[in-house]
Design a protein around this nucleic acid. Structure first.
Lengths: 126, 126
DNA sequence: ATGTTGCATCGATAAACATCAATACAACCC
DNA sequence: GGGTTGTATTGATGTTTATCGATGCAACAT
């Protein structure tokens, strides 16, 4: 029994076929534009913390009401950052009664990880 | 309710991540600020392509004179992006005669990769 | 219905950013 | 020296972004 891997949802494959990897070959313009949006979404401390707070709930969702008070920012600002993360495909949400719950979309994170992971293989000295 | 993805990965984690990882625990503010700078540096299509062009030269360096003509941008703009990548610790450079050569700093890429890689391990319970 | 609470959207503003032309600098060549 | 080439810096400009207060909307409670 070695590694078993089960991925649901659109993303086809991991580090190898689908995406070249940052180090394996120069990125073409389209892929660069696409991936840069993801990096940019994570390129803000508030969003990175939000993403981490959401993704570290392994089982599932976080209520916005648990996220907002963790920051010294207004509620609309947090809402705005959550929207950006959602537009980037990193998280999704659903309203349940009065509250809105967010959860991570691991496929997108995996895509980034795979893209960067190839970096390690090329430079043998890590 | 919406479908949650289920990712099972039997990898034996030898990445030796020094840092928590995005999914393992909520990021504290300092680490978030620090890592966000890296993501932001890669969050521009031009810089991402530059980074890829530089890093994909596994053995070594790229002359700026090879980078600039690959873009439809002015030379100062490319120079500016290279500076940002350098300030982020992703690349370094050296002048050799008339030309300036850039190379990737894999340790920084590895840090990002390790940070994201942990994302894949945590989704186990659904 | 009326009020209350949780969250999103709108409009405004100040800061950050990408970009360029012009210029400066550094190293070479003659 | 003077001229040329490669790269960085400067200054300006238009665009994007982070942030807020005010407001809107949805779901509950009474």
């Amino acid at each position: 029994m070695s590694k078993q891997e089960l991925v649901v949802l659109g993303q086809s494959d991991e580090s190898g076929a689908c995406c070249p990897g940052l180090v394996t070959a120069p990125l073409d313009e389209d892929r660069a534009t696409d991936l840069a949006k993801l990096f940019k979404a994570l390129g803000d401390p508030v969003r990175l913390r939000l993403m981490s707070m959401i993704a570290s709930r392994s089982g599932g969702e976080v209520c916005v009401c648990d996220l907002t008070p963790a920051f010294d920012l207004s509620q609309p600002t947090i809402s705005h950052h959550l929207k950006l993360l959602r537009q980037a495909g990193l998280i999704d949400c659903e309203r349940r009664g009065t509250w809105v719950y967010y959860w991570a979309l691991p496929a997108t994170l995996d895509r980034l990880a795979a893209f960067l992971k190839a970096s390690q293989t090329a430079e043998a000295t890590a």
